[in-house]
C-alpha cells in the first residue's frame, strides 16, 4: 500500500509538472536565475580568494645584512626567525646570489654593470626574505627583527618593513574589507533571489488552490494532496540546476582564457572542470531544497477546507 502510494505521488508530481507547461516553465526559469546567481557567487569567491592569495604571496619582509656579516651568523639568525610561530617561510639569499640576481636584473643597463665592475668588490649584503602566515603578522615579526638589530654588534644592516609598512597595512585592510563586503553582497543577492523563487513557486501553487479544495472534498488526505506538489518542486529544482550548471560551460569557455591574466592567473574553465561535481552538487541541492520547502509551505495554506 505504501509503495503504491509512493508510486502514485511520484507519478502525479511528474505528470503534473509537464502538464502544467507554462507555469512549470516560469518556475524553472526563475529557479535557473537564482541558481545562476549562486553559481556566479561561487566563481566570484574563487577568483577573489585566488587573487588575494596571489597578492599576499608577494608581501614579505626583507632583512639586509651588513656585508661583513659571517654566513654562520646569518644562518643562526635564520633559524631563530624560523622558530617564530607567525613565520611561514624564510628564504636565504647569499651575497654571491644577491650580486648575481642584481646583475641579471640589470643586464640591459650597461652603466650599472660598468660601475659594479669599477667597484671591484661585492657591495651587496646577504638577504633573508621572510613570509608570514597572515598579512597581519608582519608587525610582530618586524618587532622581533627590530629588537635584534638594536643589540650591540648586530649584523642586521636594515629591514624594509618600515618602508613597506604603509603598503602592507593597506593591503591587509583591503583583504579584510573585500572579504567581508564580498560575503555581504553575496548573501544579499542570494536572499533576494531565493525570495523571488519562493514566491514564484507559491504563485504557481496559488493557481491550484481551488483544485486543492476539490481534492479535499472528494476525500483525499492532506498528505496525498501535498506530496505531488513537493515532487513537482523537486522535478523543477533538478531541471533548473542542470540548466544552470550547463549554462556556465559556454561562459567559462569564453571568459576563462580571456580573463586569466586579469584575475591573477586563475583559469575559470579549469576551475569549472575540476570542481564540476561539487559545483553541480551545490546547485542541485539548493534547487531541490528550495523547491521542496516552497512547495510544502505554499500548499499547506490551501489545505484548510
Amino acid at each position: 500500500m505504501i509503495i503504491t502510494n509512493i508510486k502514485r505521488v511520484f507519478k502525479a508530481g511528474v505528470v503534473n509538472f509537464f502538464r502544467n507547461g507554462s507555469v512549470s516553465l516560469a518556475t524553472v526559469l526563475i529557479s535557473v536565475l537564482t541558481l545562476f546567481t549562486l553559481g556566479s557567487l561561487i566563481f566570484g569567491r574563487a577568483v577573489l580568494l585566488y587573487t588575494l592569495d596571489q597578492v599576499q604571496n608577494k608581501v614579505d619582509i626583507s632583512v639586509y645584512f651588513r656585508s661583513d656579516a659571517l654566513e654562520e651568523e646569518i644562518l643562526t639568525m635564520k633559524q631563530s626567525i624560523e622558530q617564530l610561530g607567525e613565520v611561514k617561510m624564510v628564504e636565504y639569499v647569499s651575497r654571491d646570489q644577491a650580486i648575481a640576481d642584481f646583475k641579471e636584473k640589470h643586464k640591459d643597463n650597461a652603466l650599472i654593470l660598468q660601475s659594479l665592475d669599477e667597484l671591484g668588490v661585492n657591495p651587496l649584503g646577504a638577504v633573508l626574505n621572510i613570509k608570514a602566515k597572515q598579512p597581519s603578522q608582519y608587525e610582530s615579526i618586524a618587532d622581533f627583527l627590530k629588537k635584534a638589530s638594536q643589540q650591540d654588534n648586530s649584523i642586521i644592516d636594515k629591514t624594509n618593513y618600515f618602508q613597506n609598512k604603509m603598503a602592507i597595512d593597506r593591503l591587509t585592510n583591503i583583504f579584510a574589507v573585500s572579504k567581508s563586503i564580498g560575503i555581504g553582497i553575496s548573501l544579499a543577492l542570494l536572499i533576494v533571489s531565493l525570495l523571488i523563487t519562493f514566491n514564484t513557486i507559491r504563485l504557481a501553487i496559488y493557481t491550484s488552490r481551488e483544485e486543492i479544495g476539490v481534492m479535499r472534498l472528494v476525500g483525499a488526505s492532506n498528505r496525498f494532496i501535498s506530496w505531488p506538489f513537493v515532487v513537482e518542486g523537486v522535478v523543477g529544482g533538478v531541471i533548473a540546476s542542470i540548466v544552470a550548471t550547463a549554462a556556465f560551460y559556454p561562459l567559462v569557455l569564453w571568459f576563462g582564457p580571456r580573463t586569466k591574466d586579469f584575475f591573477g592567473g586563475i583559469d575559470l574553465l579549469q576551475y569549472y572542470a575540476s570542481n564540476f561535481f561539487s559545483f553541480f552538487g551545490v546547485l542541485l541541492g539548493t534547487g531541490t531544497v528550495l523547491g521542496v520547502i516552497s512547495s510544502f509551505i505554499a500548499v499547506r495554506r490551501y489545505l484548510k477546507v
Binding site: M1, T4, N5, R8, M215, V218, G219, A220, S221, F224
Partner: peptide, 10 residues
C-alpha cells in the same frame, strides 16, 4: 483520483 485518494489498489 477519488479511488487513489481512498487507497484502492490499481
Amino acid at each position: 483520483f477519488a479511488m487513489e485518494a481512498s487507497g484502492r489498489t490499481p
